[in-house]
Protein backbone atom coordinates (compact mmCIF):
# COMPACT_ATOMS: atom_id res chain seq x y z
CA UNK A 1 0.00 0.00 0.00
CA UNK A 2 1.46 3.41 -0.97
CA UNK A 3 1.91 6.08 1.72
CA UNK A 4 -0.41 8.35 -0.30
CA UNK A 5 -2.95 5.60 -0.59
CA UNK A 6 -6.17 6.70 1.16
CA UNK A 7 -6.56 3.18 2.53
CA UNK A 8 -3.24 3.55 4.39
CA UNK A 9 -4.85 6.13 6.68
CA UNK A 10 -7.59 3.77 7.85
CA UNK A 11 -6.90 2.80 11.47
CA UNK A 12 -7.20 -0.65 12.96
CA UNK A 13 -10.81 -0.99 14.09
CA UNK A 14 -10.82 -4.44 15.66
CA UNK A 15 -13.74 -6.84 15.78
CA UNK A 16 -17.34 -5.74 15.87
CA UNK A 17 -20.96 -6.48 15.19
CA UNK A 18 -23.67 -5.33 12.82
CA UNK A 19 -26.02 -3.03 14.74
CA UNK A 20 -29.51 -4.46 14.85
CA UNK A 21 -32.34 -2.94 16.86
CA UNK A 22 -33.53 -6.38 18.02
CA UNK A 23 -30.40 -6.62 20.18
CA UNK A 24 -29.90 -2.92 20.82
CA UNK A 25 -29.81 -3.20 24.63
CA UNK A 26 -27.29 -6.05 24.55
CA UNK A 27 -25.09 -4.08 22.18
CA UNK A 28 -25.24 -0.94 24.31
CA UNK A 29 -24.11 -2.94 27.30
CA UNK A 30 -21.26 -4.65 25.46
CA UNK A 31 -18.73 -1.89 24.92
CA UNK A 32 -16.04 -4.22 26.28
CA UNK A 33 -16.87 -6.97 23.78
CA UNK A 34 -17.48 -4.90 20.66
CA UNK A 35 -14.69 -2.79 19.16
CA UNK A 36 -16.85 -1.10 16.54
CA UNK A 37 -20.30 -1.24 15.00
CA UNK A 38 -21.55 -1.37 11.45
CA UNK A 39 -24.92 0.25 10.80
CA UNK A 40 -27.13 -0.16 7.74
CA UNK A 41 -27.01 3.32 6.21
CA UNK A 42 -30.56 3.27 4.90
CA UNK A 43 -31.96 2.80 8.41
CA UNK A 44 -30.58 6.20 9.39
CA UNK A 45 -31.04 8.22 6.24
CA UNK A 46 -34.78 8.94 6.23
CA UNK A 47 -35.99 11.79 8.36
CA UNK A 48 -34.04 13.29 11.22
CA UNK A 49 -35.89 11.18 13.76
CA UNK A 50 -33.08 8.61 13.89
CA UNK A 51 -30.46 11.24 14.65
CA UNK A 52 -30.69 10.76 18.39
CA UNK A 53 -30.24 7.01 18.10
CA UNK A 54 -27.30 7.46 15.76
CA UNK A 55 -25.68 10.04 18.04
CA UNK A 56 -26.02 7.70 20.98
CA UNK A 57 -24.40 4.83 19.07
CA UNK A 58 -21.58 7.05 17.90
CA UNK A 59 -20.90 8.20 21.46
CA UNK A 60 -20.25 4.63 22.53
CA UNK A 61 -18.67 3.06 19.47
CA UNK A 62 -16.74 3.72 16.30
CA UNK A 63 -19.40 3.37 13.61
CA UNK A 64 -19.03 2.37 9.97
CA UNK A 65 -22.10 2.90 7.77
CA UNK A 66 -22.75 0.11 5.30
CA UNK A 67 -25.18 0.78 2.45
CA UNK A 68 -27.35 -1.60 0.48
CA UNK A 69 -29.01 0.66 -2.10
CA UNK A 70 -26.26 2.51 -3.94
CA UNK A 71 -26.30 0.26 -7.04
CA UNK A 72 -22.69 1.05 -7.78
CA UNK A 73 -22.70 -0.97 -11.00
CA UNK A 74 -25.59 0.94 -12.59
CA UNK A 75 -25.19 2.24 -16.09
CA UNK A 76 -27.66 4.97 -15.16
CA UNK A 77 -26.26 7.84 -13.08
CA UNK A 78 -26.40 7.37 -9.33
CA UNK A 79 -29.33 9.00 -7.54
CA UNK A 80 -28.15 12.42 -6.33
CA UNK A 81 -30.73 12.66 -3.54
CA UNK A 82 -29.74 9.26 -2.26
CA UNK A 83 -26.06 10.21 -2.35
CA UNK A 84 -26.75 13.36 -0.33
CA UNK A 85 -28.45 11.28 2.34
CA UNK A 86 -25.51 8.87 2.35
CA UNK A 87 -23.17 11.79 2.82
CA UNK A 88 -25.19 13.02 5.78
CA UNK A 89 -24.91 9.66 7.55
CA UNK A 90 -21.26 9.32 6.61
CA UNK A 91 -20.47 12.78 7.98
CA UNK A 92 -22.40 12.21 11.19
CA UNK A 93 -20.52 9.03 11.97
CA UNK A 94 -17.12 10.44 11.05
CA UNK A 95 -16.27 7.05 9.57
CA UNK A 96 -12.83 6.62 7.94
CA UNK A 97 -14.40 4.88 4.94
CA UNK A 98 -17.83 4.05 3.55
CA UNK A 99 -18.80 0.52 2.55
CA UNK A 100 -21.25 -0.81 -0.02
CA UNK A 101 -21.71 -3.77 -2.35
CA UNK A 102 -20.38 -4.48 -5.80
CA UNK A 103 -23.86 -5.00 -7.15
CA UNK A 104 -26.81 -3.76 -9.12
CA UNK A 105 -29.91 -2.90 -7.06
CA UNK A 106 -31.75 -0.43 -9.27
CA UNK A 107 -32.44 0.50 -12.84
CA UNK A 108 -34.72 3.36 -13.88
CA UNK A 109 -38.25 2.42 -12.81
CA UNK A 110 -37.33 -0.74 -10.91
CA UNK A 111 -35.94 -1.26 -7.45
CA UNK A 112 -34.80 -4.87 -7.49
CA UNK A 113 -35.07 -5.00 -3.71
CA UNK A 114 -31.85 -6.91 -3.22
CA UNK A 115 -28.28 -7.16 -4.42
CA UNK A 116 -27.93 -8.63 -7.87
CA UNK A 117 -24.68 -9.57 -9.61
CA UNK A 118 -22.93 -7.43 -12.18
CA UNK A 119 -22.14 -8.55 -15.66
CA UNK A 120 -18.34 -8.51 -15.64
CA UNK A 121 -17.68 -6.67 -18.90
CA UNK A 122 -15.64 -3.68 -20.04
CA UNK A 123 -18.66 -1.32 -20.26
CA UNK A 124 -19.88 -2.41 -16.81
CA UNK A 125 -16.40 -1.81 -15.42
CA UNK A 126 -16.33 1.67 -16.95
CA UNK A 127 -19.71 2.51 -15.40
CA UNK A 128 -18.60 1.22 -12.01
CA UNK A 129 -15.33 3.17 -12.10
CA UNK A 130 -17.28 6.33 -12.94
CA UNK A 131 -19.68 5.72 -10.06
CA UNK A 132 -16.98 4.88 -7.50
CA UNK A 133 -15.11 8.07 -8.32
CA UNK A 134 -18.27 10.11 -7.93
CA UNK A 135 -19.03 8.59 -4.53
CA UNK A 136 -15.50 9.02 -3.24
CA UNK A 137 -15.37 12.62 -4.44
CA UNK A 138 -18.66 13.40 -2.74
CA UNK A 139 -17.90 11.66 0.54
CA UNK A 140 -14.26 12.66 0.69
CA UNK A 141 -13.26 9.21 1.88
CA UNK A 142 -12.58 5.80 0.38
CA UNK A 143 -15.38 3.56 -0.76
CA UNK A 144 -14.95 -0.07 0.26
CA UNK A 145 -16.90 -2.57 -1.83
CA UNK A 146 -18.15 -5.99 -0.81
CA UNK A 147 -18.34 -9.18 -2.82
CA UNK A 148 -21.96 -10.40 -2.91
CA UNK A 149 -23.55 -13.81 -3.15
CA UNK A 150 -25.22 -14.66 -6.42
CA UNK A 151 -27.55 -17.41 -7.56
CA UNK A 152 -26.30 -17.37 -11.13
CA UNK A 153 -23.54 -16.08 -13.35
CA UNK A 154 -24.49 -13.82 -16.18
CA UNK A 155 -23.08 -15.56 -19.26
CA UNK A 156 -20.74 -14.02 -21.84
CA UNK A 157 -18.72 -12.10 -19.22
CA UNK A 158 -15.42 -10.66 -20.44
CA UNK A 159 -13.52 -11.09 -17.21
CA UNK A 160 -13.67 -12.86 -13.87
CA UNK A 161 -15.00 -11.20 -10.73
CA UNK A 162 -11.45 -11.14 -9.34
CA UNK A 163 -10.14 -9.31 -12.41
CA UNK A 164 -13.06 -6.90 -12.23
CA UNK A 165 -12.21 -6.13 -8.62
CA UNK A 166 -8.52 -5.77 -9.48
CA UNK A 167 -9.05 -3.31 -12.29
CA UNK A 168 -11.63 -1.38 -10.29
CA UNK A 169 -9.36 -0.84 -7.29
CA UNK A 170 -6.44 0.05 -9.58
CA UNK A 171 -8.50 2.72 -11.31
CA UNK A 172 -10.14 4.23 -8.23
CA UNK A 173 -8.01 3.42 -5.17
CA UNK A 174 -11.14 2.06 -3.52
CA UNK A 175 -10.98 -0.76 -1.00
CA UNK A 176 -12.55 -4.18 -0.65
CA UNK A 177 -14.81 -5.56 2.04
CA UNK A 178 -14.36 -9.28 1.70
CA UNK A 179 -17.41 -11.11 2.97
CA UNK A 180 -15.75 -14.40 3.84
CA UNK A 181 -19.11 -16.09 4.21
CA UNK A 182 -20.22 -14.89 0.78
CA UNK A 183 -17.01 -16.26 -0.68
CA UNK A 184 -17.61 -19.61 0.98
CA UNK A 185 -21.25 -19.71 -0.12
CA UNK A 186 -20.41 -18.81 -3.71
CA UNK A 187 -17.65 -21.42 -3.81
CA UNK A 188 -20.12 -24.07 -2.64
CA UNK A 189 -23.00 -23.06 -4.90
CA UNK A 190 -20.82 -22.52 -7.96
CA UNK A 191 -18.22 -25.20 -7.34
CA UNK A 192 -14.96 -23.25 -7.28
CA UNK A 193 -11.94 -23.17 -4.99
CA UNK A 194 -12.14 -20.13 -2.65
CA UNK A 195 -8.39 -20.22 -2.03
CA UNK A 196 -7.75 -19.98 -5.77
CA UNK A 197 -10.24 -17.10 -5.93
CA UNK A 198 -8.31 -15.25 -3.23
CA UNK A 199 -5.08 -15.84 -5.13
CA UNK A 200 -6.54 -13.88 -8.05
CA UNK A 201 -8.00 -11.09 -5.91
CA UNK A 202 -6.12 -7.89 -5.03
CA UNK A 203 -6.10 -8.98 -1.38
CA UNK A 204 -3.84 -6.08 -0.37
CA UNK A 205 -6.89 -3.84 -0.92
CA UNK A 206 -9.04 -5.74 1.57
CA UNK A 207 -9.84 -3.39 4.43
CA UNK A 208 -12.54 -5.22 6.31
CA UNK A 209 -14.28 -8.57 6.37
CA UNK A 210 -17.78 -9.83 7.07
CA UNK A 211 -18.66 -13.07 8.82
CA UNK A 212 -22.09 -14.66 9.08
CA UNK A 213 -23.88 -17.98 9.07
CA UNK A 214 -26.25 -19.24 6.38
CA UNK A 215 -28.60 -22.15 5.77
CA UNK A 216 -29.51 -24.63 3.07
CA UNK A 217 -32.66 -24.14 0.96
CA UNK A 218 -33.57 -26.33 -2.02
CA UNK A 219 -29.98 -27.45 -2.41
CA UNK A 220 -28.63 -23.90 -2.32
CA UNK A 221 -26.57 -22.46 0.51
CA UNK A 222 -28.22 -19.15 1.42
CA UNK A 223 -26.54 -16.18 3.06
CA UNK A 224 -29.16 -15.98 5.81
CA UNK A 225 -27.22 -14.06 8.48
CA UNK A 226 -29.17 -16.25 10.86
CA UNK A 227 -26.83 -18.99 12.07
CA UNK A 228 -23.43 -19.28 13.66
CA UNK A 229 -20.39 -18.84 11.43
CA UNK A 230 -19.64 -22.11 9.63
CA UNK A 231 -16.36 -23.95 10.35
CA UNK A 232 -15.35 -23.63 6.69
CA UNK A 233 -15.65 -19.85 6.97
CA UNK A 234 -13.35 -19.78 10.00
CA UNK A 235 -10.86 -21.85 7.99
CA UNK A 236 -11.04 -19.37 5.13
CA UNK A 237 -10.51 -16.51 7.56
CA UNK A 238 -7.46 -18.25 8.97
CA UNK A 239 -6.04 -18.43 5.46
CA UNK A 240 -6.89 -14.80 4.73
CA UNK A 241 -5.32 -13.44 7.90
CA UNK A 242 -2.01 -14.85 6.72
CA UNK A 243 -2.27 -12.79 3.54
CA UNK A 244 -3.43 -9.35 4.57
CA UNK A 245 -3.34 -6.87 7.44
CA UNK A 246 -7.09 -6.60 8.06
CA UNK A 247 -8.41 -3.44 9.72
CA UNK A 248 -11.66 -4.83 10.95
CA UNK A 249 -14.16 -7.65 11.13
CA UNK A 250 -17.93 -7.44 11.45
CA UNK A 251 -20.20 -10.29 12.44
CA UNK A 252 -23.55 -9.96 10.65
CA UNK A 253 -26.56 -11.50 12.36
CA UNK A 254 -30.01 -10.38 11.23
CA UNK A 255 -32.43 -13.14 12.16
CA UNK A 256 -32.93 -16.06 14.52
CA UNK A 257 -31.25 -14.17 17.33
CA UNK A 258 -29.88 -16.37 20.11
CA UNK A 259 -31.41 -16.02 23.59
CA UNK A 260 -27.92 -15.38 24.88
CA UNK A 261 -26.20 -12.59 22.91
CA UNK A 262 -22.97 -13.92 24.35
CA UNK A 263 -23.09 -16.45 21.50
CA UNK A 264 -22.56 -13.55 19.11
CA UNK A 265 -19.89 -11.93 21.25
CA UNK A 266 -17.94 -15.19 21.36
CA UNK A 267 -17.75 -15.18 17.58
CA UNK A 268 -16.70 -11.52 17.62
CA UNK A 269 -13.93 -12.42 20.06
CA UNK A 270 -12.80 -15.36 17.95
CA UNK A 271 -12.50 -13.12 14.90
CA UNK A 272 -10.57 -10.55 16.92
CA UNK A 273 -8.09 -13.16 18.09
CA UNK A 274 -7.56 -14.55 14.60
CA UNK A 275 -7.10 -11.13 13.05
CA UNK A 276 -4.70 -10.04 15.79
CA UNK A 277 -2.58 -13.14 15.29
CA UNK A 278 -2.63 -12.58 11.54
CA UNK A 279 -1.62 -8.93 11.87
CA UNK A 280 1.37 -9.90 13.96
CA UNK A 281 2.47 -12.37 11.28
CA UNK A 282 1.84 -10.05 8.35
CA UNK A 283 3.53 -7.05 9.99
CA UNK A 284 6.51 -9.18 11.00
Amino acid sequence: MRASDPLARIPYLGSGLGYRRQIRDAIRAATDEIDFLEIVTEQFMGSTDKDGELAEICERFTVIPHGVGLSIGSAAPLDSDYLERVRRVSDRTGCPYYSEHLALTQVPGIDIGHLSPLWFTEPALACTIRNVRRVQDLLGKPLVLENVTYQFDIPEAQMSQAEFFGRLVDATDCGILLDVTNLHINSVNHHFDPIAFLAEMPVERIVQIHLAGGFWSDGILVDGHSEQVHPEVWELLAHLTGLVDLRGSILEHDDNFPDDPGVLFQQVARAREMISRGRARVQA
Binding site: G73, A76, V107, I110, C127
Partner: peptide
Protein backbone atom coordinates in the same frame (compact mmCIF):
# COMPACT_ATOMS: atom_id res chain seq x y z
CA UNK B 1 -22.74 -3.22 -25.68
CA UNK B 2 -25.21 -0.81 -24.14
CA UNK B 3 -25.14 -2.12 -20.55
CA UNK B 4 -28.15 0.01 -19.58
CA UNK B 5 -30.49 -2.02 -21.77
CA UNK B 6 -29.12 -5.30 -20.49
CA UNK B 7 -29.44 -4.13 -16.90
CA UNK B 8 -33.01 -2.95 -17.49
CA UNK B 9 -33.91 -6.30 -19.03
CA UNK B 10 -32.29 -8.28 -16.22
CA UNK B 11 -33.97 -6.23 -13.49
CA UNK B 12 -37.34 -6.84 -15.09
CA UNK B 13 -36.66 -10.56 -15.33
CA UNK B 14 -35.92 -10.56 -11.60
CA UNK B 15 -39.02 -8.73 -10.39
CA UNK B 16 -41.74 -9.15 -13.05
Amino acid sequence: MTTSELQACLARLYVD
